[in-house]
Design a binder for these strands. Structure first.
Lengths: 146, 146
DNA sequence: ATAATTAAGGACAAAAATACCTTTAATTGT
DNA sequence: ACAATTAAAGGTATTTTTGTCCTTAATTAT
C-alpha cells in the first residue's frame, strides 16, 4: 500500500501523539524502538514531519526530543501522507493511471472507485488524535508472536 | 498501491483478455503500446505471467504472440498478484505490520480492516473475464487529456 | 533447408528507496 | 564559559525496482 517511509511516518506520528506532550518529549531512539524502525532512517522521516513544526515539534539538547502539540493532533492523517509526498492513493487508480475517472474510466474503475473513496475519506477525516488513544499502549511491532 | 510491475501485469492481462484468443495473438509491441508500458520491461512481466502458461499463453515465431485461454479467463485477478509476488495487500496492515489482527490490532486496525476486506474480496472474486468484458471500459493510458 | 519472425533468457544499467554514519548546531545543566 | 545531550544536516552505502540490450530458442513460411 504505502512505502516504508510512509509506514514509519504514520507509526511515529501516532506513537508520538499517544506518548508525548510538550512536557514529555521522546528521543529518536525511544521512537525508533517503539515503532520497530531503523533509527537513522527514522531520523530522516522525523525531519520531514518536523518541517516548519507543522506536524511534529522538536527541540534539541538535553531533555529535548520530539512531541506534538494539541493543535497538531487535530490534523487529519492525510497531512502525514502529504509530508511524505505519498500522493498516489489520491491521484492514481489501481492500475496506475493518472486521470482515471467517470469520463475515461479504466477497466477496474467501477470496482475500485468505491474502495478508493473510503480510503480517501479515512485519511481526510480521521485526525491524529482519533487514532492515538493514550489509554492503552498500542501495538507497532512488525512481527508479533500471535 | 501496487508496484509498477504489478500495474503493468494487471493492465497487460486485462488487455490480452479483451483483445486476444488462440487465433488472434498479440505481439509484445502491440501489448506494450496499448497498455502504455516500456516494451522490454513488459517482456519480463509477460514471462512471469506465462510461467507454466498458467495465466497467459504464448507461442514464438511468425504469427506468434501472447493470448489467454477461455479457462484462464476464469481465474480471479488475485492470481496476477500472486504471479508478481505482490502479497503485501493480503498479509500486511496499512501501517506495515505482519500480524495485525483483532488479537493484536494496530492503532488503525478498526479503521482499515473493512476496507482491506473489500480489497481482498475484489481480487479474490473478480475474474479476468469479468474485467475484460466488452461492457467494461478499456482505457489503459497513464496520462489522458481529460 | 533456409530465412524471417517472435518470445525466452541472461547480463547489464539506471534510478529510486532504504539505511547508515559523521559532523554541525542548538539547548541545557553545572 | 564549558561539557553533555539531543536533533539537524550532509554525505555515503546498500538494496530493490525499473528499465535496456543482446543472444538464444522456437516456430513459420518459402
Amino acid at each position: 500500500m504505502f512505502s516504508k517511509s510512509t509506514e514509519y511516518a504514520l507509526r511515529a506520528t501516532i506513537y508520538i501523539a499517544q506518548e508525548s506532550n510538550s512536557d514529555k518529549k521522546l528521543s529518536l531512539n525511544q521512537i525508533a524502538n517503539a515503532i520497530d524502525s531503523p533509527p537513522s532512517f527514522t531520523a530522516k522521516i522525523l525531519q520531514l514531519l518536523t518541517k516548519d513544526n507543522c506536524i511534529i515539534s522538536s527541540v534539541r539538547g538535553p531533555n529535548g526530543g520530539f512531541y506534538i502539540t494539541e493543535d497538531a493532533k487535530q490534523l487529519p492523517i492525510r497531512k502525514v501522507l502529504e509530508a511524505m509526498d505519498e500522493q498516489d492513493l489520491f491521484i492514481k487508480c489501481i492500475l496506475g493511471l493518472n486521470n482515471c475517472s467517470e469520463t475515461k474510466p479504466c477497466p477496474m474503475h467501477y470496482q475500485y472507485q468505491p474502495i478508493k473513496k473510503q480510503l480517501i475519506k479515512l485519511f481526510e477525516t480521521k485526525t491524529i488524535l482519533q487514532l492515538a488513544d493514550p489509554s492503552q499502549p498500542a501495538n507497532f511491532l512488525v512481527n508479533n508472536s500471535l
